[in-house]
């Protein structure tokens, strides 16, 4: 005694096949923006954390012996400052590695008047009066200066934030464009089936029944589009990951995907299906409301 299924729409409407792909492309762009946004956020957080408990002291002096002497003095001050976990003068090897991307591995560094850098790690949560510390260091090493990375970090974070904002607005625009596309398609689909809808309406079908038939189809369209989009995203991310494995470079940050990114991407087809379905439902019900 199963209740019968009401199937009154003809199968196969070509423009919905096209809609699969249009939605697929939109979902792809949305997915890429979401990935970019989340990854940027994570990277910024990494930078912030690693920059917060470190600072650099530079000793800039053209004469190497003066430079070494002041470095020793600065190290002495630093090592006796509470809250400093470690202070280490970078050696020539460190410096050439740091400069290699710009001047190459040429041994040129020994002849260049590069400043001496002292890498300072702070104890987590240590509250250090940087101005007092700098004054103290300058007392015994007059050519020293503290670089807290703050200016550099602020710029970078602002940049990351701007990029995230752009990614977010791309997502919003894509969602709006997708909904608009679905509204158009649902309307034209309804228009193409006008006679069928009118007859079924006059035979006593409720608005919900009629909307339900359309909604069911558009759910499928949205889901397929979402899967196409997700497939494209996976293809691109897979490609990026593959290349990052082969190109080991100091410029490239290590590509890792946060669980949040993966979960959101996995949900994308379902969310797209839902949005498509609800949009089609609303559109059809609105058009039906105009019928007596």
């Amino acid at each position: 005694m199963s209740q019968t299924k009401l199937e009154f729409l003809p199968s196969g409407q070509t423009h919905r096949g096209l809609l699969n792909w249009v939605i697929g492309i939109m979902v792809f762009l949305t997915g890429m923006s979401i990935v970019a946004g989340i990854q940027l956020g994570l990277m910024a957080e990494d930078w912030r954390l690693s920059a917060a408990d470190s600072l650099t002291v530079q000793i800039i002096h053209p004469k190497p012996d003066q430079r070494d002497q002041q470095t020793k003095a600065a190290l002495a001050v630093l090592n006796s400052t509470p809250g400093v976990a470690s202070a280490r003068a970078m050696n020539d090897g460190d410096m050439s590695a740091l400069l290699a991307p710009w001047i190459g591995d040429t041994g040129l560094i020994e002849h260049l008047p590069v400043p001496q850098l002292v890498e300072v790690k702070l104890m987590p949560g240590a509250a250090i009066d940087l101005q007092a510390l700098e004054a103290l260091i300058v007392d015994s090493a007059p050519n020293a200066a503290i670089d807290t990375h703050e200016q550099w970090l602020d710029d970078l974070l602002a940049l990351a934030q701007a990029a995230q904002l752009i990614a977010l607005s791309v997502v919003v625009m894509m969602v709006v464009a997708t909904i608009a596309t679905i509204v158009f398609t649902a309307r034209s689909s309804l228009l193409a089936q006008q006679e069928i809808v009118a007859v079924v309406h006059m035979l006593g079908a409720t608005d919900n029944t009629i909307a339900g038939a359309f909604q069911q189809r558009f759910w499928g369209v949205g889901l397929r589009g979402g899967l196409i989009g997700l497939g494209l995203v996976a293809l691109v991310i897979g490609g990026v990951y593959f290349f990052s494995l082969n190109v080991q470079s100091a410029y490239l940050p290590q590509v890792t995907f946060h669980a949040t990114t993966v979960i959101i991407l996995a949900l994308l087809p379902l969310v797209t299906g839902f949005i498509t379905m609800l949009t089609a439902r609303r559109t059809v019900k609105r058009v039906l409301a105009e019928m007596v």
């Binding site: 005694m1 199963s2 019968t4 009154f8 079924v200 035979l203 006593g204």
Partner: peptide, 15 residues
């Protein structure tokens, strides 16, 4: 001919 019955939610048997 079955359409009005299906719209009403009749059972397959009845249809």
């Amino acid at each position: 001919v079955a359409l009005p019955l299906r719209i009403k939610g009749a059972t397959e048997e009845q249809v």
